[in-house]
Amino acid sequence: MTSSAVALHDLTAGYGSRAAIHHVTGEFALGSLTAIVGPNGSGKSTLLKTIAGLLTPMSGECSRSRKALAYLPQISELDRDFPARVRDLVTLGLWQRRGLLDRHLAEDRARVEDALFQVGLEGFGHRPLDSLSGGQLQRTLFARVLVQDAQLILLDEPFNAIDDKTIRDLTALIQHWNAEGRTVLTVAHDLALVRAHFPQTLLLARRAVAWGPTSEVLTEANIARTRTFQEAWDEDAPWCAPDAAWRAA
């Protein structure tokens, strides 16, 4: 029995021959609440995509339990013009429980209504998606995560362009999940928010600059080290060993 929810072993992942995260090793403990912090282009979204299984590692390993996870992407492919209602979108979260063909039971419908209540959208079930504000849509997506009832939850910049009240409500929800023993990974930019609510932090700049208790990770020295991070690809970046010799030949 392992005590980690996700274990990264020398993980490199990216697009084409460009590594967005480079030889990262470490683990997210079961039931931990971690903020993933770093400059734009530092590999935060790539890491979550790799953990979610949407991206295959270029080398190294990313292992996690076979149990279902809930993943909330930063750039959604959600079609807001699709003629669906808030309830329909939240109901998608039943997939892991009911799959393609199992009937949705009364308890499932109750679960959906309860999730809407918990995110403060009681009575919004019948609203068309294209009538929602940005904050309401994010609450709706959090309700879907609630319905998914996953032990591992990945949230990619859930607080982008969201007002303070919504951030407070959603942060409370994240802490509630953590209190229930779920493992939560959240990409965030607001360091004050991270210091206040996230016990663990992974500071990323293509590689793991620091990883551990938030107070030890978010030091001036560490943050300064990420400032020198170059987002742009270096066209002449050296090939990473061991096949550098082969490339040069």
Partner: peptide
């Protein structure tokens, strides 16, 4: 009849469907 749920999910939020199923 069989694939209705998956078809709606694929239209509404394809990335979500990919994160929960290979369908």
């Amino acid at each position: 009849g069989i694939f209705w749920r998956a078809l709606v999910a694929e239209c509404l939020d394809p990335l979500f469907l990919r994160s929960v199923s290979g369908m």
